[in-house]
Amino acid sequence: MRKLLRTIFLIDLIEGLWVTFHYQHPKYRCTEQYPAERPKVAERYRGAPRLNTNPETGETLCIACNLCALACPEKLIVVSSERNEKTRRKELTTFTFDTSRCMFCGLCEDACPVDALELTQDFELASYSREGAIWDRQMLEEGPRPTKYKF
């Protein structure tokens, strides 16, 4: 009898619809209005790579040890260095990082012994060409500059 009444008065459907309707209140809104509202990503987020420099002198922290290139599963990092005749030390000349092949696994930053290479919180990596996705040393040190939209 009760089951019959439930069927006739569509109680089972109304129960479900009640759940839907009580979420109509604006306080339950959870859509993020990107790009007007930019997400705040976590501190450990693995995004755009960056080659850190010494903030005082502007010199690179990289010691050109090539460990990141060896750790990379996709072999997309190319490090080249030159031996300085005076100080007898290896100095970094070029550093390329192909972000189009990168899967942001974080193995390169784990491998870095001096915390020079780091995956940062920048996540907007789109570019107009394939070549634009290959970052050279200057780009890695200065970071990407995504267009800031105004609303």
Partner: peptide, 15 residues
């Protein structure tokens, strides 16, 4: 996914 992002830095393919 937010917990994953805070813990290891990625949301989907976490490693």
């Amino acid at each position: 996914l937010n917990i994953y992002e805070k813990y290891c830095g990625a949301r989907l393919t976490t490693h």
